[in-house]
Write a protein that binds this DNA or RNA. Sequence first.
DNA 1: GTCTATATGCGGATAGAC
DNA 2: GTCTATCCGCATATAGAC
Lengths: 210, 210
Amino acid sequence: MASLTTRERILQSSLALFNAQGLAAVSTHRIAAELGISPGNLHYHFKAKQLIVERLFRRFEERLEELNASTDRVRAIDDLWLTLHLRFEAIDAYRFIYRDMAYLGSEYPALGQRAQALTAGNLLAAKALCETLRATGVIEATAEEAQILALQMVFTTTCWLSFEQLVPGRDALQQADPGLAAFYTLTLISPYVSSESRAYLDYLRGKYLR
Amino acid sequence: MASLTTRERILQSSLALFNAQGLAAVSTHRIAAELGISPGNLHYHFKAKQLIVERLFRRFEERLEELNASTDRVRAIDDLWLTLHLRFEAIDAYRFIYRDMAYLGSEYPALGQRAQALTAGNLLAAKALCETLRATGVIEATAEEAQILALQMVFTTTCWLSFEQLVPGRDALQQADPGLAAFYTLTLISPYVSSESRAYLDYLRGKYLR
DNA sequence: GTCTATATGCGGATAGAC
DNA sequence: GTCTATCCGCATATAGAC
């Protein structure tokens, strides 16, 4: 940790601050102060705040695109559970992006465009995934229902962590539980799950519903 | 329109600008310029930007609480459709609130608290509504499923309009369609709808799914 | 690479004349 | 009620010494 380059330390510190306090609320001075370096030094490594945000956004894109590329290996409910879990971990690690999306899109229009493209990729992957589940009999649904399920899944993975902060009783400081979020997403397909695949869902229900 | 008080014109103009460009991106100078009045004059009517935001938030609260209070009259699918439609119209009219919620909550913590309380009220109303639907046989579901449905409905009504802007193909300038959003929310309960109530859902499906 | 010092601009908010 | 003029603080970004 201490042996990282200053550039990398800036990125990690920025990410932590953006996630904790919001993209708009964190100034470059604040980032520099957090690291114990001067604003001038920070500017040497990143000429503008926008470049920090872009770099972090790029990493987020890469991580999600990697997940999208591997969804074709999902064959059963527990595969689906795992891929959802990994996705929520990724979104949580960069949670400022979806949470502050409106601000991000208006401040940095180019990133707003790329966020749309990323969503398009997520939708494609989710549709392929739901179609596979349908074709292999894990869920019993019409093609139309599978399409809608895919949209619901992308919607949920994208917005759930932001919504959570609106539900009283969840401490904002307490970190999100990707497992709970994944379970919640799975309940979307619950009505369509064929009897043979029911066991794993019931196992999860016992684990997450008290 | 032209005969409104300056105070009211400030509120309406602020709402339009917040919705169009985001709470963070709109300064008090900008609002004054839009109205063709001076920043000093605006300050005479509202001593701080926060007071404008608070007033708008209050109206939003009132409108949603009114809707929450009337959900106990929902007895059938088409009642549900109407109440969802009205809710999406309200959220769309004040769309900056949920869309910029993260920024709003960090800039004005008191409003963040009230947003949580509002969500709690929405959840209570949705739970009562789903329980009624279950008790009257409009949907066939366990008590547990009805609870989860209520959560999904509140989640969807809260976040859908924000998510829509991430889906490519929807022009950001084109105004949201509350009817489509309400239909999308109804698909959540679709798997549970008893055969007698199916007709109205099919009618809507024909209307919104091309 | 890192520092200090500073330029520039903007947004929020205010004072006081009309 | 409305204006002009202005203050203050902050954030981005830069210049130049070490």
